[in-house]
Write a protein that binds this DNA or RNA. Structure first.
Lengths: 222, 222
DNA sequence: CAAATAGTGTCTCTTAGACAGTATTTG
DNA sequence: CAAATACTGTCTAAGAGACACTATTTG
């Protein structure tokens, strides 16, 4: 910014509260649904009982720190997640409590990380399929929509940019991941294979399928 | 955000000043350079003398309003520009005057709009080719880089999403615009034509070239 | 006519998609 | 062997790029 505060202290200007809200996305293996984590709350002065995890930014704190803190305290996630900025929601009326800007964030996590949290605090943290995460408070519906669009864009290019699969994985697991992210299966299974295989490296050793069929090649990200 | 302010007034939290900074991009017809508008300033307590136009957000003001106000007052641009959010810069040390977050914005404008400003206030507003807009204060180098990447992404898909050309225009003018935006000419002139022509509509009447050559078809955006 | 610019026809290469056919496992 | 799953070969269609060729202007 420029200094229209020239000779004038910064405190002379009214300042908004700044919050962060984060869409934590994950793919539920039981039904292959793309889900978002929501916090269940006592609905005191707010009518909704589920919302994205978020918090206010503390004094001179970085946004990423505030996100990590809110995910740690409210969700119980480890502090090493790397969220990405999505958008600033700045409607001065968006929060009845006052002038609050929210910087929306998104992060996608493997189920291996998400599952323990859901079993540890089932009455606090819930996973909701993204098409059933509607009617959330504030602009949280918007944030979920943007988060999903962000994830889909990233997965259109590369096999697994967010590292949602544990390595090594089969082409089938990768295809099922993409089906979950995109909301529909890729148009053709073999075209999908050919599109992806250049970005992967084959691993010796094969997966002995639990059921029938030819054993599948295992891959790692290139 | 969630309410960790439950029962606690919002004012109990320290709040940052929030600023907006905007990269105004334009293509200079004289040399076909992609340029960014900078404000020349009296360097009082800041060493740099050129910076992106910006301002602090006023009480309960929307970011887009703050951007429009700064572009109006500092640059002299009409208020109907539609900037887009790029990124929030949140390093608490980024401004020596205090805790300031800046929401970076970008907008691309036709030269027809930019030129009158440069001639009206040449000692205040200057246009700088983007590869020579380096060493700017704060995170403005970063903002310019992100702004250019944003513009290039948009022009990779469609002929003229920002409306930089006055309609109707020739394929040559469009190609020169893309050359300026991308920083290099499209690989092949006829492949470029074929890629673009589906997104355009031909106009009757042709352009009589000032110099030699077959008159060119005129197009509008579809 | 020469130079310059606009536009088309056509060839090659690559890629996506469709689809059939082959390969290898379990039961 | 049947069923299921993994993979490959091949055809077609679409698109990008290269390049030559045609078209229409100015001087």
């Amino acid at each position: 910014m420029d200094d229209d505060a020239q000779g004038r202290p910064l405190t002379a200007y009214p300042r908004p509260s700044v919050a962060v809200d984060t869409a934590v996305l994950a793919v539920r293996p039981t039904d292959g649904q793309l889900t978002v984590l929501l916090i269940r709350r006592e609905s005191r002065h707010l009518d909704q009982s589920e919302a994205l995890p978020g918090t206010f930014v503390h004094d001179r704190q970085r946004l990423a720190e505030a996100v990590a803190r809110s995910l740690d305290q409210k969700v119980g996630l480890p502090a090493d997640v790397v969220p990405e900025q999505l958008h600033v929601f700045d409607d001065p009326e968006r929060d009845s409590r006052g002038w609050v800007m929210s910087v929306a964030h998104v992060v996608a996590l493997p189920w291996r990380v998400v599952e323990p949290i859901l079993s540890a605090r089932p009455e606090v943290v819930v996973d909701r399929p993204i098409d059933r995460a509607r009617g959330l408070p504030f602009d949280h519906d918007d944030i979920v929509r943007r988060a999903v669009a962000w994830l889909r864009e990233r997965y259109a290019e590369r096999p697994d940019p967010a590292g949602l699969l544990d390595e090594p994985f089969t082409m089938r697991q990768l295809r099922e991941l993409h089906t979950a992210v995109a909301g529909e299966p890729p148009s053709s299974s073999d075209a999908f294979r050919r599109r992806m295989v250049d970005h992967l490296v084959a691993v010796k050793g094969e997966l002995l399928r639990g059921t029938v069929g030819k054993p599948a090649q295992l891959f790692r990200r290139r």
